[in-house]
Design a protein around this nucleic acid. Structure first.
Lengths: 120, 120
DNA sequence: CCGGATCCCGGCCGATACTG
DNA sequence: CAGTATCGGCCGGGATCCGG
Protein backbone atom coordinates (compact mmCIF):
# COMPACT_ATOMS: atom_id res chain seq x y z
CA UNK A 1 0.00 0.00 0.00
CA UNK A 2 1.17 3.51 -0.83
CA UNK A 3 1.79 6.41 1.47
CA UNK A 4 -1.33 8.22 2.59
CA UNK A 5 0.48 11.31 3.91
CA UNK A 6 3.43 13.38 2.78
CA UNK A 7 5.11 15.95 5.01
CA UNK A 8 6.37 17.86 1.98
CA UNK A 9 2.82 18.84 1.00
CA UNK A 10 1.83 22.18 2.47
CA UNK A 11 -1.67 21.14 3.50
CA UNK A 12 -0.83 17.67 4.82
CA UNK A 13 -1.86 17.11 8.47
CA UNK A 14 1.41 15.27 9.04
CA UNK A 15 2.98 18.72 9.04
CA UNK A 16 1.16 19.57 12.24
CA UNK A 17 2.45 16.36 13.77
CA UNK A 18 6.01 17.07 12.73
CA UNK A 19 5.64 20.60 14.00
CA UNK A 20 4.84 19.28 17.45
CA UNK A 21 7.67 16.79 17.42
CA UNK A 22 10.02 19.56 16.37
CA UNK A 23 8.96 21.79 19.27
CA UNK A 24 11.92 22.76 21.39
CA UNK A 25 11.49 20.46 24.37
CA UNK A 26 9.39 17.57 23.07
CA UNK A 27 12.37 15.32 22.43
CA UNK A 28 13.66 15.98 25.93
CA UNK A 29 10.38 15.23 27.71
CA UNK A 30 9.66 12.08 25.72
CA UNK A 31 13.17 10.79 26.31
CA UNK A 32 12.98 11.67 30.01
CA UNK A 33 9.83 9.56 30.42
CA UNK A 34 11.51 6.52 28.90
CA UNK A 35 12.00 4.80 32.26
CA UNK A 36 8.42 5.14 33.49
CA UNK A 37 6.12 7.67 35.20
CA UNK A 38 7.64 10.87 36.58
CA UNK A 39 6.37 13.76 38.66
CA UNK A 40 6.44 17.39 37.55
CA UNK A 41 9.33 18.33 39.81
CA UNK A 42 11.25 15.19 38.89
CA UNK A 43 10.97 16.09 35.21
CA UNK A 44 12.04 19.64 35.92
CA UNK A 45 15.10 18.43 37.80
CA UNK A 46 15.97 15.78 35.22
CA UNK A 47 15.67 18.06 32.20
CA UNK A 48 18.13 20.66 33.38
CA UNK A 49 17.42 24.23 32.38
CA UNK A 50 13.73 23.83 31.49
CA UNK A 51 11.43 26.39 33.12
CA UNK A 52 8.12 25.39 34.75
CA UNK A 53 6.14 27.37 32.18
CA UNK A 54 7.73 25.67 29.21
CA UNK A 55 7.50 22.26 30.87
CA UNK A 56 3.80 22.80 31.50
CA UNK A 57 3.17 23.90 27.93
CA UNK A 58 5.07 20.94 26.53
CA UNK A 59 3.27 18.46 28.78
CA UNK A 60 -0.13 19.92 27.88
CA UNK A 61 0.63 19.74 24.17
CA UNK A 62 1.87 16.16 24.40
CA UNK A 63 -1.17 15.19 26.46
CA UNK A 64 -3.42 16.81 23.86
CA UNK A 65 -1.71 14.80 21.14
CA UNK A 66 -2.23 11.59 23.12
CA UNK A 67 1.48 10.98 23.63
CA UNK A 68 1.51 11.20 27.42
CA UNK A 69 -1.03 10.64 30.17
CA UNK A 70 -1.41 12.91 33.17
CA UNK A 71 -2.59 11.37 36.45
CA UNK A 72 -3.41 13.54 39.45
CA UNK A 73 -3.59 11.94 42.90
CA UNK A 74 -5.68 13.82 45.45
CA UNK A 75 -3.16 13.79 48.29
CA UNK A 76 -1.30 16.21 50.49
CA UNK A 77 1.21 17.20 49.35
CA UNK A 78 -0.30 16.96 45.86
CA UNK A 79 1.12 14.41 43.48
CA UNK A 80 0.90 14.46 39.69
CA UNK A 81 2.47 11.85 37.48
CA UNK A 82 3.16 11.87 33.75
CA UNK A 83 3.82 8.79 31.67
CA UNK A 84 4.08 7.85 28.01
CA UNK A 85 1.05 6.31 26.37
CA UNK A 86 1.49 3.45 23.93
CA UNK A 87 1.54 6.04 21.14
CA UNK A 88 4.17 7.99 23.06
CA UNK A 89 6.33 4.93 23.46
CA UNK A 90 6.18 4.34 19.73
CA UNK A 91 7.46 7.88 19.21
CA UNK A 92 10.22 7.24 21.71
CA UNK A 93 11.83 4.84 19.26
CA UNK A 94 12.79 7.44 16.61
CA UNK A 95 13.29 10.23 19.16
CA UNK A 96 15.76 8.28 21.24
CA UNK A 97 17.63 7.63 18.00
CA UNK A 98 17.76 11.37 17.36
CA UNK A 99 18.99 11.94 20.88
CA UNK A 100 21.64 9.27 20.46
CA UNK A 101 22.75 10.84 17.18
CA UNK A 102 23.11 14.24 18.85
CA UNK A 103 25.15 12.84 21.71
CA UNK A 104 27.29 10.80 19.37
CA UNK A 105 28.17 13.41 16.75
CA UNK A 106 29.08 16.39 18.93
CA UNK A 107 32.76 16.19 17.89
CA UNK A 108 31.85 16.12 14.17
CA UNK A 109 29.68 19.23 14.48
CA UNK A 110 32.35 21.03 16.47
CA UNK A 111 34.95 20.08 13.88
CA UNK A 112 32.72 21.52 11.14
CA UNK A 113 32.38 24.76 13.08
CA UNK A 114 36.14 24.96 13.54
CA UNK A 115 36.68 24.40 9.80
CA UNK A 116 34.46 27.38 9.00
CA UNK A 117 36.49 29.59 11.33
CA UNK A 118 39.67 28.55 9.53
CA UNK A 119 38.31 29.24 6.05
CA UNK A 120 35.56 31.89 6.14
CA UNK B 1 32.54 2.54 27.09
CA UNK B 2 30.15 4.97 28.76
CA UNK B 3 28.36 7.92 27.25
CA UNK B 4 30.49 11.03 26.86
CA UNK B 5 27.57 13.42 26.38
CA UNK B 6 24.11 13.77 27.90
CA UNK B 7 21.43 16.03 26.44
CA UNK B 8 19.74 16.31 29.83
CA UNK B 9 22.68 18.26 31.25
CA UNK B 10 22.21 22.01 30.86
CA UNK B 11 25.78 22.74 29.79
CA UNK B 12 26.25 19.76 27.45
CA UNK B 13 27.21 20.73 23.87
CA UNK B 14 24.86 18.03 22.58
CA UNK B 15 22.11 20.50 23.49
CA UNK B 16 23.30 22.84 20.76
CA UNK B 17 23.24 19.97 18.30
CA UNK B 18 19.73 18.97 19.29
CA UNK B 19 18.69 22.60 19.08
CA UNK B 20 19.69 22.69 15.41
CA UNK B 21 17.94 19.44 14.64
CA UNK B 22 14.82 20.80 16.34
CA UNK B 23 14.81 23.95 14.20
CA UNK B 24 11.60 24.34 12.19
CA UNK B 25 12.71 23.19 8.78
CA UNK B 26 15.81 21.07 9.37
CA UNK B 27 13.98 17.76 9.19
CA UNK B 28 12.32 18.82 5.94
CA UNK B 29 15.52 19.92 4.20
CA UNK B 30 17.50 16.85 5.25
CA UNK B 31 14.73 14.54 4.13
CA UNK B 32 14.35 16.42 0.85
CA UNK B 33 18.02 15.87 0.02
CA UNK B 34 17.71 12.13 0.51
CA UNK B 35 17.71 11.37 -3.21
CA UNK B 36 20.81 13.37 -4.12
CA UNK B 37 21.86 16.97 -4.91
CA UNK B 38 19.17 19.57 -5.40
CA UNK B 39 19.11 23.19 -6.54
CA UNK B 40 17.72 26.05 -4.48
CA UNK B 41 14.53 26.40 -6.49
CA UNK B 42 14.05 22.64 -6.57
CA UNK B 43 14.19 22.52 -2.80
CA UNK B 44 11.80 25.44 -2.50
CA UNK B 45 9.32 23.73 -4.79
CA UNK B 46 9.68 20.35 -3.13
CA UNK B 47 9.31 21.64 0.43
CA UNK B 48 5.99 23.33 -0.09
CA UNK B 49 5.36 26.45 1.94
CA UNK B 50 8.95 27.30 2.82
CA UNK B 51 10.00 30.88 2.05
CA UNK B 52 13.32 31.70 0.35
CA UNK B 53 14.59 33.54 3.42
CA UNK B 54 13.95 30.65 5.78
CA UNK B 55 15.32 28.14 3.27
CA UNK B 56 18.50 30.17 2.97
CA UNK B 57 18.87 30.40 6.76
CA UNK B 58 18.32 26.70 7.17
CA UNK B 59 20.77 25.80 4.41
CA UNK B 60 23.43 28.12 5.86
CA UNK B 61 23.02 26.64 9.34
CA UNK B 62 23.21 23.07 8.06
CA UNK B 63 26.26 23.92 5.98
CA UNK B 64 27.89 25.50 9.03
CA UNK B 65 27.23 22.30 10.99
CA UNK B 66 28.81 20.23 8.24
CA UNK B 67 25.57 18.43 7.36
CA UNK B 68 25.25 19.66 3.79
CA UNK B 69 27.63 20.90 1.11
CA UNK B 70 26.98 23.88 -1.12
CA UNK B 71 28.45 23.88 -4.62
CA UNK B 72 28.23 26.93 -6.85
CA UNK B 73 28.82 26.56 -10.60
CA UNK B 74 29.90 29.71 -12.39
CA UNK B 75 27.45 29.54 -15.27
CA UNK B 76 24.68 31.57 -16.77
CA UNK B 77 22.05 31.18 -15.56
CA UNK B 78 23.69 30.57 -12.17
CA UNK B 79 23.49 27.08 -10.71
CA UNK B 80 23.90 26.15 -7.06
CA UNK B 81 23.53 22.65 -5.73
CA UNK B 82 23.09 21.37 -2.20
CA UNK B 83 23.78 17.82 -1.08
CA UNK B 84 24.10 15.89 2.14
CA UNK B 85 27.59 15.24 3.45
CA UNK B 86 28.42 11.86 4.96
CA UNK B 87 27.56 13.35 8.35
CA UNK B 88 24.28 14.61 6.92
CA UNK B 89 23.43 11.19 5.54
CA UNK B 90 24.03 9.68 8.97
CA UNK B 91 21.52 12.16 10.40
CA UNK B 92 19.07 11.24 7.66
CA UNK B 93 18.67 7.81 9.23
CA UNK B 94 16.96 8.96 12.45
CA UNK B 95 15.26 11.94 10.79
CA UNK B 96 13.62 9.87 8.08
CA UNK B 97 12.35 7.63 10.88
CA UNK B 98 10.82 10.67 12.56
CA UNK B 99 9.25 11.69 9.27
CA UNK B 100 7.88 8.21 8.75
CA UNK B 101 6.44 8.20 12.27
CA UNK B 102 4.70 11.52 11.63
CA UNK B 103 3.19 10.34 8.36
CA UNK B 104 2.14 7.05 9.88
CA UNK B 105 0.48 8.26 13.08
CA UNK B 106 -1.63 11.14 11.78
CA UNK B 107 -4.88 9.25 12.50
CA UNK B 108 -3.80 8.48 16.08
CA UNK B 109 -3.01 12.13 16.81
CA UNK B 110 -6.27 13.25 15.24
CA UNK B 111 -8.15 10.69 17.31
CA UNK B 112 -6.48 12.03 20.47
CA UNK B 113 -7.54 15.56 19.55
CA UNK B 114 -11.10 14.43 18.94
CA UNK B 115 -11.17 12.67 22.31
CA UNK B 116 -10.22 15.91 24.07
CA UNK B 117 -13.03 17.76 22.33
CA UNK B 118 -15.50 15.13 23.53
CA UNK B 119 -14.32 15.22 27.15
CA UNK B 120 -12.74 18.59 27.98
C1' DC C 1 6.54 22.14 49.75
C1' DC C 2 4.28 20.82 45.06
C1' DG C 3 2.39 22.15 40.80
C1' DG C 4 1.41 25.23 38.42
C1' DA C 5 -0.35 30.42 36.33
C1' DT C 6 0.83 35.32 34.87
C1' DC C 7 3.55 39.08 32.93
C1' DC C 8 6.65 40.55 29.78
C1' DC C 9 10.40 40.45 26.53
C1' DG C 10 13.64 38.92 22.69
C1' DG C 11 14.45 36.15 18.90
C1' DC C 12 13.02 33.19 15.50
C1' DC C 13 9.53 32.57 11.80
C1' DG C 14 7.19 34.12 8.04
C1' DA C 15 5.03 37.26 4.05
C1' DT C 16 6.12 40.41 0.64
C1' DA C 17 9.00 42.97 -2.35
C1' DC C 18 13.22 43.67 -4.62
C1' DT C 19 18.19 42.60 -6.81
C1' DG C 20 22.84 40.68 -9.11
C1' DC D 1 18.04 31.45 -10.76
C1' DA D 2 19.40 32.30 -6.37
C1' DG D 3 19.07 34.67 -3.29
C1' DT D 4 18.58 39.83 -0.04
C1' DA D 5 15.82 43.56 2.43
C1' DT D 6 12.45 44.92 5.40
C1' DC D 7 8.91 44.59 8.48
C1' DG D 8 5.60 42.32 11.58
C1' DG D 9 3.84 38.69 14.57
C1' DC D 10 4.02 34.85 17.26
C1' DC D 11 6.12 31.62 20.11
C1' DG D 12 9.79 30.25 23.19
C1' DG D 13 11.68 31.59 27.49
C1' DG D 14 12.97 34.01 32.13
C1' DA D 15 11.30 36.03 36.35
C1' DT D 16 7.72 36.29 39.41
C1' DC D 17 3.43 35.18 41.75
C1' DC D 18 -0.46 31.91 43.34
C1' DG D 19 -3.43 27.97 45.13
C1' DG D 20 -3.81 23.66 47.92
Amino acid sequence: MGKAYNVMAATCPSRTVLHRIGARWTVFVVNALEGGPMRFTELKAHIQGITPKVLTETLRALEHDGLIQRTSYDESPPRVEYELTELGRSLLVPLSAVRAWAEEHVPDIQAAHAAHVEKP
